[in-house]
Each structure stands twice: as structure tokens, then as C-alpha cells.
Amino acid sequence: MASLLLAILSGLIISYPFREEIPLVSTAGLEGVIPFGALFRSFHYYTAQIAFLLLVWHTVEAILTRGYERRRFFYWVFLAGAYPLFVLILFTGYIIRGDETGLSAGRIAENLTYTLPYLGNLLNRLCFSVSEDGVHRAYLSHLFFSFGLLLVLSLWHFRLRRIKLEDLALWAVLALTLALIWPPSLEPPRYTLHIKGPWFFLGIQELLRYLPPFWAGIFIPLLPVTALIFFPKAPRTCLLGLVVWHLFYFIFLGRGLLR
């Protein structure tokens, strides 16, 4: 929660000079014109990444301590549902920087959503539509879903405990360190055919080489979410499924990273 809160606060700051009709000019402006723009952009990037990894850790912790037995099934389903939502937020963030790989990833995602029966067109209109609207839809969904996620998570978590200052400081220090050492990149236009998506998407990108888009881009990514949702009902089977899925996915992700 602390890291997500930091990501949203820093996102608010960088959204001020950002104009979605000229995304790349805005991002380059953040990097090279606006004072502290590059720092806030890096900070925003890393706090969001850390928040996602902490969500993973939170889930693993809940599984290891059998926390799902103490929670109502509805809240567990929401935890599992937070994954596709969070991935969508990270992915739209990748698109809206507006550089070559960002926009290409957007187009790939757009084409993947079309393979989803019945809901594909609606989902594309809602989240991507990069080929028609540029980064406009992706930008709006990035903002809306981020605040939505924060709001719903807050309703649950703030009832349990308040965020401590040291939690905020810890994740801020980690994100700041990463931001200073490895600022997130911006990819210029290249006349090469190899486009690398965000790290978590590379496995899907690799799978797309071997499987039809629906299976690689929709079906396989939905498997772990489904396994997570039904974890309280059949823990052993779902755990096995999750472990096998992650082993399988990380092999492809590693292959994608090395390309």
C-alpha cells in the first residue's frame, strides 16, 4: 500500500506537465526540460514496480500462512483480481510514455484484446485503442484504474491499520536508490523489427511466437489468476498449477529477455 501510494503521488506530479496528445514530447520534456521531472518519473516507475512485487509477496505470504482461510472468499477473489488490474496499470504506463516500444507494445495489446470473444472490442476501447486514439485511452485507463485500485485497497487496508511513516520511507528509499542508479529508459524509433515489451510481458511476447494470440495472450495469462481465485477451494491443485505455470512462464520470460 505504501509503495502504491508513493507511485500514485509521484504519478500525480508527473501528470501535470504530461499532455497525452504529444506523449513522447512530454516524456522527453520530463527527462530533459522540467526540473526534477526525470527524478519523479524514475521514482514513479520504481515505486509502481515495487508495489507490484510487494503484491506478489503479499499473496505468497497469504498462501504460506494460510491467510486465505481467515478471509472471506470475496476478498480473496479481489486479491486475485488485483493482478490483471495491476498488470494493466503497469502496461498502460509503459504505453503512455509514447516511445517506439511503448506504442508497439500498445498495438500488440490492442490486437490481443481483439482475440477475446465478446468483450475484446469493449476492452480495447476502454484501455488501448492505440491505433485510433494514440495514448489517450491508455492514459485515461492508467489514471482511472490506478485511483480505482488505490480506493478499493484503501477501503480494506486502512480498516486494518494505518500506513506507518517508516513504511513509506523504506519504499521511497528503495525506489529513489533504483531511480538514481538505473533511470528507466526511453526507446527511440528504430528501423528494427525487434520490439521488447515490459519485463512482465516478455513471456507472453515469447509465447506469441509459438501459439495463436488468444492462447498466448489471453488464455495462458488468465490461468494463474483463475488458480489464485480458487486457491481456498483446492489449495494443493492450485498451488501445483501456480508453481508449474510460473516455471513455464519464467523460462519463456528468460528467453524473451535474452533476445
Binding site: V25, A28, G29, G32, V33, P35, F36, A38, L39, E166, A169, L170, A172, V173, L176, T177, A179, L180
Partner: peptide, 27 residues
């Protein structure tokens, strides 16, 4: 953590001050 945070913040501010900045994005 707070001390480290302050130190990093100072570092980040120095880095930002020393950063070359254009008056506008050349296109």
C-alpha cells in the same frame, strides 16, 4: 531509513541541479 532517505534526497537534488536542461523539447 529516514537518514538514508534524507541523504538520497540530497544526492537526487544535486544530480537534478547539475543536469543539463533544454528550454524546450526540440522537435
Amino acid at each position: 531509513v529516514l537518514l538514508l532517505g534524507c541523504l538520497l534526497l540530497v544526492l537526487a537534488i544535486i544530480k537534478e541541479i547539475r543536469r543539463t536542461r533544454a528550454p524546450q523539447v526540440p522537435v
